[in-house]
Design a protein around this nucleic acid. Structure first.
Lengths: 156, 156
DNA sequence: CGGAAGTTGTTTAAATTTGAAATACCAGGT
DNA sequence: ACCTGGTATTTCAAATTTAAACAACTTCCG
């Protein structure tokens, strides 16, 4: 825990990233909700399921992908189930588990919302970036993520 | 709303930024809470107040800086007031308003937490970046933020 | 001046998120 | 088969966040 300060430029970068990524998410979620009855969380659930083999995922795996606490996902899937976007099915091999399954209605909702959402992402984010920016961001955040998961695995 | 798709590299950048900035915040907040009784929100309130002239800010201004909805800030300041970190005072000139004021205890809490928190930011974020990364991130996110506020001001 | 219209913060109730404890089950010995 | 120690998910209560409705002021204009 040595070196307990940041230089002004380091602090500026940290604040810029945190603040504007937050504002960016808020803006994009507003767009999504105005256009579609979906929360960004709803949308992300639909995306993950739609990309999964069999359009289904174990609750735990889905929680990991979404960075959701388990009980949060239970609730989230609960509300989506009420709206008919997903179904819950017991897991065949492991009877402790259950899986969330994308319904036709869920897939339709995703397909209906995707163009508008991706347009919003382009408008607020991608359009501000040139090819070098894009590559730099991917490289930087991928590395940060790797380091974070490494740190989580081996905390001592 | 034309051009409703993203190329794979664009999508990859978007996902990398969103996911790992989220994981980064979670990690850093965990560190902060383990070391200090403060939430990241608490910490940010303390920082804003400590940097403000007179160590005080109008509720509205503070809400803007923190990107908080007004009622959320009311609640947030409420809990911090109970813990003695801030005080609430009526605004001298505008009797509708009130301001949040940093207490000595609040300042002490900030000073006690800052080194550990900044160390955490360094460890999980700054250390992964070279000078070029730092500059690129600041430039990119500053621009995104400017565009976002411009869009908010002139939505039509 | 008089009052419509806009601001500022707070309140309230409902929705969401968290975190701890409960449930149900799996896996490896014994 | 019977423990013992995990793992997967849900449940429950408490804390937080949001959205809408208010109360109290200010401002602006006619």
């Amino acid at each position: 825990m040595r070196d307990e300060k940041l230089r002004p430029d380091e602090l500026a970068a940290w604040r810029a990233v945190v603040e504007s990524s937050q504002r960016l998410l808020i803006t994009i979620e507003d767009d999504l909700r105005k256009a579609s009855d979906l929360t960004l969380a709803d949308y992300n659930v639909l995306v993950q399921l739609s990309e999964a083999p069999g359009r289904r995922l174990r609750m735990g795996d889905l929680a990991t992908k979404l960075i959701f606490a388990p009980s949060r996902l239970t609730y989230q899937i609960g509300t989506m189930e009420k709206r008919g976007l997903v179904t819950r099915e017991p897991c065949p091999d492991d009877r402790r588990g259950s899986e969330a399954v994308l319904t036709e209605a869920g897939l339709a909702a995703l397909r209906a919302a995707a163009p508008g959402h991706l347009g919003s992402v382009r408008r607020h984010f991608i359009e501000d970036l040139d090819a070098a920016d894009l590559a730099a961001l991917t490289k930087i955040f991928t590395r940060i993520d790797e380091r974070l998961s490494a740190a989580r695995t081996e905390p001592r």
